[in-house]
Design a protein around this nucleic acid. Sequence first.
DNA 1: GCCAACGTTGGC
DNA 2: GCCAACGTTGGC
Length: 154
Amino acid sequence: MAKYWLMKSEADVYSIDDLKKDGRTMWDGVRNYQARNNMKAMEKGDWVLYYHSRQTPSAVTGLARVVKEAYPDPTQFDPKHKYFDAKSDEDDPRWWLVDIEFVRKFDEQVGLPDIKARKGLADMVLVNNSRLSVQPVRKAEFETVLKMAGEAMP
DNA sequence: GCCAACGTTGGC
DNA sequence: GCCAACGTTGGC
């Protein structure tokens, strides 16, 4: 059974349009343990709501899918990279990531205010823990967000 | 651009 | 192990 997730990206850093252009991408740079643990729990074929933060309003803008399960984030070992982590051991990597692929861009974005106002979405992690960049989504929540976007279930 | 909320670090 | 200081995220 595929699971459901939500992944955030700053709209002006890597948008759904960038993902569409690239087709797929390596979700590097996550340096938060909870977010990392969520990526480790992902399986190929899981669905991902793609969310833009730092835009007005923040919004779910599309759909992506996990295409490669967790492996060590190579940027943590590159001293020249901004995501370099000197404390990470190659034999026991601290940071992991997944690859996701573009599925669909929504014609209609689902804004955070609408999500907050929607009955049935009050328990979404997005609503209650605004800092977590990779988070689980319940099936019913996923279905509701898709419905709000005017999209059919994948 | 501001700043509240949160996670992490490090001194003790 | 506590907690103050610091850095970052992200809503507004």
